[in-house]
């Protein structure tokens, strides 16, 4: 029986809570969930919240290697079961997080908005940001850097790296940048590359219209219209 899996971005990485039931179902549902969004999870750190599941060291080791196969690091195991905590310790895993990290930010609940992070720095080659909510960067995103966000991506600077907005499937996500020249841009399951830029740069916004990736001048007053938008690059995934 498939069980629900919840994923939430926290300071240390992704807080993943498998559904309650028997562990076999929970484990296979978890893997299914990870496999459904491989890009999103690849390279992230997982904090697994196990509730009262009684797991042995061998189960945790299996979990850890299943995560590793999918490019996910196991940061720590949170459990209410003392035996599970002990088993996690014996594997050298973290078993607690600083208190503040688990608190829901009051603003996001009040506005019922999505969690977001703000980075005031240039992302350089090799930097990688995975976040389930929106990502805002005040700085450049250089070639070789990547941002994978569950929501939208806003770059107040040059965007020349790789970005994936709506990585969990949200087709309303957008990507905006002062200079939108990404190596590769994806929204949900659609991908495009940038043609070499000629002439002056201007702020642009990329979004999905009828299954096509469209980039157009970024002006907060206009509602994006598919018809006027120029197609940026070819859709490489049809």
């Amino acid at each position: 029986m498939p069980l629900s899996v919840s994923v939430k971005g926290i300071h240390e990485g992704l807080l993943i809570t498998p559904g309650e039931g028997n562990w076999e179902d929970a484990f296979s549902s978890l893997l299914e969930h990870l496999d459904s969004k491989p890009d999103f999870f690849f390279g992230a750190q997982a904090i697994i919240q196990l509730g009262s599941y009684p797991l042995h060291a061998a189960d945790l080791a299996t979990l850890r290697s299943a995560l590793a196969d999918r490019g996910l690091g196991l940061h720590s195991i949170l459990s209410e079961n003392p035996a599970t905590v002990e088993a996690a310790r014996s594997l050298g895993l973290g078993t607690s997080l600083p208190k503040r990290e688990l608190k829901e930010s009051p603003i996001s609940t009040e506005l019922r908005g999505m969690d977001a992070i703000f980075l005031q720095q240039t992302l350089r080659s090799g930097n990688s940001i995975h976040f389930p909510g929106h990502v805002t960067v005040l700085g450049d995103v250089n070639p070789g850097a990547e941002i994978i966000a569950g929501g939208s991506i806003i770059v107040w600077g040059h965007l020349r790296g790789t970005v994936h907005a709506g990585a969990q499937g949200d087709e309303t996500s957008v990507v905006c940048a002062m200079d939108l020249s990404p190596m590769q841009l994806r929204i949900a399951s659609h991908a495009a590359t940038s043609p070499p830029r000629k002439g002056k740069t201007q702020p642009e916004i990329a979004s999905l219209h009828d299954g096509r990736l469209v980039a157009e001048p970024w002006s907060p007053k206009d509602k994006p219209k598919a018809a006027d938008g120029k197609i940026k690059g070819e859709d490489i995934q049809g």
């Binding site: 720095q121 992302l123 350089r124 080659s125 090799g126 930097n127 250089n142 070639p143 070789g144």
Partner: peptide, 16 residues
């Protein structure tokens, strides 16, 4: 050259 600059960028990030 593109690949050398890419690596230099990486190094600058690590230094930071």
């Amino acid at each position: 050259e593109v690949s050398a600059v890419r690596d230099a960028d990486r190094i600058i990030g690590l230094l930071e």
